[in-house]
Design a protein around this nucleic acid. Structure first.
Length: 138
DNA sequence: ATTCTGACTTGCT
DNA sequence: AAGCAAGCCAGAA
């Protein structure tokens, strides 16, 4: 995975406002490159540098092992939640999830502009690569 | 080149 | 609502 890709992913995640969230697949789509698993891979290795809790599974579940920490952020940011999160906070069990239907980030016009810049920059570096490959294969 | 693996998704019980 | 199988994308062995 190219470092440009990692940078692009982190840049996008950094744009997500407090209180909202997106799924891994959403980030891939905004980026116009790769798939959900690629985003997951980037987050697992570099997520510590950004608000990682704002990126989750499509089901709204926080990444395994980080539910407890993530919940603290959600409560602090007022992120919409569904289920027994209160019980989970007290006793450690109970099922809950982020209400993605409500919390999903809807980028403003200016945010869209920023996303475009990121996506195009990435696109450019990827294209440069394929050109190099073509040259080599001749 | 082939196979395995993973902070994923979707569709079907 | 929760569990499972298959599909998917890339990097690593």
């Amino acid at each position: 995975m190219r470092t440009e890709y990692v940078e692009a992913v982190l840049a996008v995640v950094g744009l997500i406002p407090a209180g909202s969230a997106v799924a891994y697949g959403d980030v891939a789509e905004l980026l116009g490159s790769g798939g959900p698993r690629q985003i997951g891979a980037v987050m697992s290795h570099h997520g510590n540098a950004v608000p990682w809790w704002r990126v989750l599974k499509a089901s709204g579940q926080a990444p395994e092992g980080l539910e407890s920490q993530a919940l603290q952020f959600y409560l602090r940011e007022g992120t919409p939640l569904r289920g027994d999160f209160l019980r989970f906070a007290r006793t450690g069990d109970g099922r809950w999830r982020v209400d993605l239907a409500t919390a999903r980030w809807a980028p403003s016009d200016s945010e869209f502009d920023a996303l475009d810049v990121i996506a195009e920059g990435l696109e450019a570096s990827l294209h440069k690569l394929s050109v190099a490959d073509d040259g080599m294969s001749e």
